[in-house]
């Protein structure tokens, strides 16, 4: 492989992995607290839509990002309310929200833009870190990315740190592992789980905005196209640990990037196989073929005081 191609490949892998990285990190926190938030897909789509519309309406992608985040909060509130307070089946609520959001964003998109669907949407600017951006071959192809990618990496790293080294992280872990003990210690399981779902919503909103105003500067109907489920697969493959989840998402990103790379290299691998690969890997992981899986014991179990 030529050096230029390797650089393009690395750059696009990182770019394609980013939405997964963000949403999977949020999902990880939610699942650690005991809530299987299957509505990542819907949350991402809401973020992508609201971010794009906000950016279009205000002309400012940063305001668009803000609007995207705000728009996901009611969705997160609904998910948290249904799965914690009403103790509804978390799979059902997730699928319900995903169907609802796909319908709602498609309808709203047609109503708002209609025939103007090819309108360019103002997107977030790009930025190269000092020094790294100056590396020959790689500097431009790998590191010249939207600044949101770097901000996202910082947020993921911060989350990993909070989850590992702080009392808050411990409380989140405990809410999914020993909710009774958390309750006895005087903390509110309910509050932790609500917070975790809102955090998942925030991260999914970032992921969605990254797709629409960070990466391609447009919105298309149902543009998440299963990325939310891929994020869930990432968490599973990552065995509910931040480090491994990050690796899984990067790998999924690389697999997606290969779809565009392999034909250019003259290698004939069916597209479908590469797209399927992440799901297959996640299935092998949950099937116990890649080491022992350890899901949070109280995942999907609503807490009753």
């Amino acid at each position: 492989m030529k050096l230029e191609m390797l650089a393009v490949f690395a750059g696009s892998s990182l770019r394609l992995a980013m939405p997964l990285l963000l949403s999977a990190t949020g999902e990880l926190v939610s699942e650690r607290a005991g809530v299987l938030n299957m509505s990542v897909e819907g949350m991402m789509l809401t973020g992508a839509f609201a971010g794009a519309m906000g950016s279009l309406a205000t002309g400012s992608p940063v305001l668009g990002l803000l609007i995207g985040i705000i728009a996901v909060m009611p969705v997160a509130a609904l998910q948290a309310f249904l799965s914690n307070t009403l103790r509804a089946n978390q799979i059902v609520t997730g699928i319900g929200i995903n169907i609802f959001v796909l319908g709602a964003t498609t309808t709203a998109y047609r109503a708002v833009l209609g025939s103007r669907s090819r309108t360019e949407i103002p997107g977030l600017g790009k930025w190269s870190p000092p020094f790294l951006g100056d590396i020959p071959y790689f500097g431009d192809a790998v590191f010249h990315q939207t600044w949101m990618l770097y901000a996202g990496l910082v947020i993921v790293a911060l989350t990993a740190w909070v989850m590992r080294y702080t009392a808050l992280g411990l409380a989140v872990h405990a809410a999914g592992a020993e909710p009774r003990a958390v309750d006895k210690s005087g903390l509110s399981v309910m509050r932790i789980r609500y917070g975790a779902v809102f955090f998942a919503g925030f991260m999914s909103a970032l992921a969605g905005c990254f797709l629409s105003i960070g990466d391609i500067h447009t919105f298309t109907e149902g543009m998440t196209n299963g990325a939310g489920y891929l994020a869930l697969a990432g968490v599973i493959f990552g065995n509910w640990k931040v480090g491994r989840t990050v690796m899984a998402c990067l790998f999924f990103g690389a697999a997606t990037a290969l779809q565009f790379q392999l034909p250019a290299m003259g290698v004939d691998v069916p597209n479908a196989v590469l797209i399927m690969l992440p799901y297959l890997m996640a299935l092998l992981a949950v099937g116990g073929l890649v080491g022992r899986q350890s899901a949070p014991p109280y995942l999907t179990h609503a807490f009753v005081r």
Binding site: L78, L82, T93, G96, F100, V101, G103, A104, T106, E221
Partner: peptide, 15 residues
């Protein structure tokens, strides 16, 4: 897509 909105609301209400 409005049908999806309707379906989503049915699922969430029942859940």
């Amino acid at each position: 897509a409005i049908v999806m909105v309707i379906q989503g609301i049915i699922i969430l209400t029942l859940a």
